[in-house]
Design a protein around this nucleic acid. Structure first.
Lengths: 222, 222, 222, 222
DNA sequence: AATGAATGAGGATTCATTCAT
DNA sequence: CATGAATGAATCCTCATTCAT
């Protein structure tokens, strides 16, 4: 069920071709930069270390990226779009109506869809989380994309399920926060805090979905 | 009801006197450092800017703190203890038995207790969140204190309420994660992401407590 | 006769104290910078060479001068004022009336006064000449000081001698150009082009003064 | 009257064909280099900017000119010859005897001849003036051509007019310096310092010639 | 011939840290 | 104790030059 969903997203936003064409050196630079930035943070990383790790001359970095910050942005900016891709799907609501009768189905779809994404892009996500607070450009993008588009879209979805009586009648943003807190809390614990622990992902997700759904269920009118 | 609880904690850990004895200059240095670290991140902050903002000479910083990192640790380390203070209360369980009949009462107490704390120490908390990933010493402390003590203590508490049938019978760590995700998600949204928005804290907390409690409630045996 | 003239100028503009107070290191830096800039030109000089020649660490330069350009300006800007000092003397005209009955006396005074100056500040003058074309700030200063003040003052002087019938009645700026071309041409030849040749300065100056004065003499009304 | 004079020169030195054979790309490189060198000075100009302005690849510059300095020399060296061309005319003295009865006629011819040249080659002349002090090769050429040939030739000319009693009997080099200072002073003022001002060139030149001639006239033996 | 990616030495500048006053 | 001048290693970045295509 998640398959076509994900496919739609990827095709619509053509996310399959990773940034069109990158020379071999560019790829090595990006890889090295991701590695170093993720390990030490942007400010504490030196371009010389990145160059060394990439196996290129330091000057080569600056031939492809005008500044160190440019390099950071070229890594982090595309992720931002991809991060929120499923939610800016144009006819997301229709997809929703057709596919996910229940909020919990929607949740499962989103969680599974994003889990794959998180696993794949973990280091870059780490960088993003670390650097957003210090770079106005990133904050701008974040506000525009996440606050501007995802939140609004998500709100519509919540209201949809509220009208259907599946979700208790409280401010949609609170619903979103509670839902998102749990999903992100799971991802963070799963992949950042305790990645080495043994995880039964499916069971964990089921518990979480159940938790959210029951927590958001309307009062039982007896 | 939260009053004596908080008092116990503070007294036990003598957190009232902020770090025993600090000279006037030291206080100004710390204040300036917190300000600068929070704004730019540790690595991107310069000791000269801190000195300037503190109104002292650069050398003075190094008279009190051997290195820049020392300065960071002297700011962040004490916070770590305070952060988790309520949970390392020696006879926490007794307190618990006596005071909080229901998990939701416990939650309310914890949330209120920590909210004041978060508000007061927001900039330092920001620094802590930013820097933990890059400093093994901090990770060590974090692991020892949080994973080592808080988690264990919290686990006991959860099991306590599970035995009482107030919480569904799932792995305690999952319960903790779900609970903590929501509380932290609230604090982060409330104080970092959207601090300027108007908030009805009490109502928001009530919704959250209700959400958690109902989400964790055992299946209704009909 | 030139003595009191020069004294007046220097005292009025207090040019005796060379730049108030400079630390020993600053003096060595300036000396080294002048040497290197004069030899290689500003753009081709490296701060590391200056530091080395000054016997200080490279960082020391930047403690005293925020940028390399700052260093240049701190060398060249004060010279500009001194260069034109005699001409911005407030009551220059009175001095003139009293002292220099004839244009040739005025010329001799100026030439002698400035010759000492040129000899003393030769390397910095070289730098000034080289760098003015490439630095708008310097051009600004030059325009303001030279074009703005000296030219105007000089024009008054020329008109004064024209009224007295000592100088032919042609545009004052042409008179100035002819006069200045010769004086500067002499200084440039004397100190830049052929400094090693043997020079009988007094004789050369006398020839030059005679040349100028006769060249500018009015037509002889027979 | 100046016409055949100029023609002789140009033909003798075959200056009509600008540097024999230059590919289209080479011409564009030279043009761009002149532009950039004149604006920023040699040391502060980058080959990449020149390449960009010329519309060629960076490598192309180095295919035609082994080094950046080679490029500079290829621009400036030919100018040097042209600059002094009229004076190295082989049978200059004969030309002189035949054509210019008076020193002032000679002056007019030279001034007019060189004025056209200066106007045409202004940017390269600017570069020459700026760079000679920093490049021994250029100084060498300058010494050889100017000091070695022009000065000597000019000296003969001056002595010629001295013998004829047109010029006062002072050292010929002083005569040359005074003459040249005025002509160069005029060109520099006219084309570098105040090119935007309105100029009545003919009148200015006449004043200047008169100034020089009268300044150099022998004492009137009454 | 022309290209332009790659180089790496060198440039200006910053910064944590030291130490004489 | 406090200062702030001095340090020099390290940082980001530029640039002339080379070379495979």
């Amino acid at each position: 069920m998640a398959e076509p969903f994900e496919q739609w997203v990827d095709e619509l936003l053509n996310l399959n071709d990773e940034d069109v064409k990158l020379t071999e050196k560019q790829i090595k630079i990006i890889q090295a930069a991701v590695e170093v930035f993720a390990e030490k943070g942007y400010a504490a990383s030196s371009t010389s270390e990145i160059a060394q790790k990439a196996g290129v001359a330091e000057g080569t970095i600056f031939r492809h990226y005008k500044t160190k910050k440019d390099l950071l942005l070229s890594i982090v900016a595309p992720l931002m779009s991809k991060l929120i891709a499923p939610f800016i799907l144009k006819d997301f609501n229709k997809v929703l109506d057709a596919t996910y009768a229940r909020y919990e189905d929607f949740l499962r779809a989103v969680i599974h869809n994003r889990q794959e994404f998180v696993r794949k892009h973990l280091p870059v996500i780490k960088i993003l989380l670390q650097e957003v607070p210090f770079h106005p450009e990133l904050q701008e993008q974040f506000k525009e994309h996440v606050a501007g588009k995802v939140l609004e879209r998500f709100k519509n979805i919540v209201e949809h399920y509220q009208k259907e009586g599946q979700i208790i009648d409280i401010p949609p943003y609170s619903v979103i926060r509670m839902t998102a807190s749990n999903i992100l809390g799971f991802f963070i614990t799963r992949y950042l805090l305790a990645p080495d622990q043994e995880w039964d992902d499916e069971r964990e997700i089921e518990m979480m979905v159940r938790f959210i759904v029951r927590g958001l269920a309307p009062e039982e009118s007896r």
